[in-house]
Design a protein around this nucleic acid. Sequence first.
RNA 1: GGGUAGGUGACGGAGUGGUCAAACGUACCAGACUGUAAAUCUGGCGGUCUUAGACCUACGGAGGUUCGAACCCUCCCCUGCCCA
Length: 310
Amino acid sequence: MLDMKEIVVFLVGPTAVGKSEAAVELALAINAEIISCDSMQVYQGMDIGTAKPGKDIRKRIPHHLIDIIKPKVEFSCADFCQRSKVLIAGIIKNGKIPLLVGGSGLYIKTLVDGLFSGPSRDQKLRNRLTRQAELYGNQYLYQKLKQLDPVSAVKIHPNDRRRIIRSLEVYEKVKIPISRLKPLKEGISSQYKVRIIGLDRDRKDLYNRIDQRVDKMLEHNLVDEVRGLIKKGLSLTAQQALGYKEVIGYLNGRYGLKEAERLVKRNTRHFAKRQLSWFRHEKRIEWVKIDKNETAGRTAEKVLKLLSES
RNA sequence: GGGUAGGUGACGGAGUGGUCAAACGUACCAGACUGUAAAUCUGGCGGUCUUAGACCUACGGAGGUUCGAACCCUCCCCUGCCCA
């Protein structure tokens, strides 16, 4: 009875590990359609810096949730969840397997395990709280949180202004502590059989790939891409994308191009590390180690083998 | 050859007799994370020991002064700059 559940496959891992290439091979092998779990590839025009799969590839295998909104528009994990649920159902209905590919840990987590239904952002309120934090210090907001939602306060560091503000925001809106809301959620894992495959490489190898990728981005005129995007306006989320924020700094004359390059590389390494922290914490992930010179086809084979077992 | 400034942990850089395994920054490592997440935040960072702590090895090298030295003295080595 349990096995009647349809399967949904996730392919996750740090940036530049080789997810996209392996995903295409895998999708061809198992008759899947790809849904991108990437907070930045959703944006139109952000192509080079997000290492978006090219049009040729997307022609061979359908890729969803790429280029779906303008860079000016705010997007969130809630939007992602909602859209991907619809897509998953549709793909299954067509007799195919949904293959979710990406490195945005939170997006993946909320899709699998659900997102509590709470109020969305209120920029005005956030601005107000931010001003208070700047005037009276983070401690001021933290004390407030301690009173209203002690459970959250224990978990959140007094310096983590972002999370303190979100918690206060939720309380302000619905008068219920976010810590009470958070457990009330249901993700797709109750509905489908979820397999999460994690791709990993030696750290050194991964960092080399990141460096190479950044070099390539710059060669492919990332700077021009950013210049064009600035003219059109970027959402809060989009303007802090790796590769973009650093080039924006360069274009604003804050440092030279060489320094921008260094920063992109370094920040991307840090990011990859954070992703690994996140994914290692997720015990349901089944890990596949990629060797240094392994082809995407070979990786896909390994994943396929893992999927066919059990 | 003469003069001068210096040699500190992966790097940059404080420290100029005890409270120094050595500020601070960076790199690096590790962790947290549910509506901005490619964001935000935290911890570690000479070695050994299970933490408090203890011990060992350390501030270019070798000696010395001192109860005690990264800090003072002597000699040596090296580097930058200036004059020849």
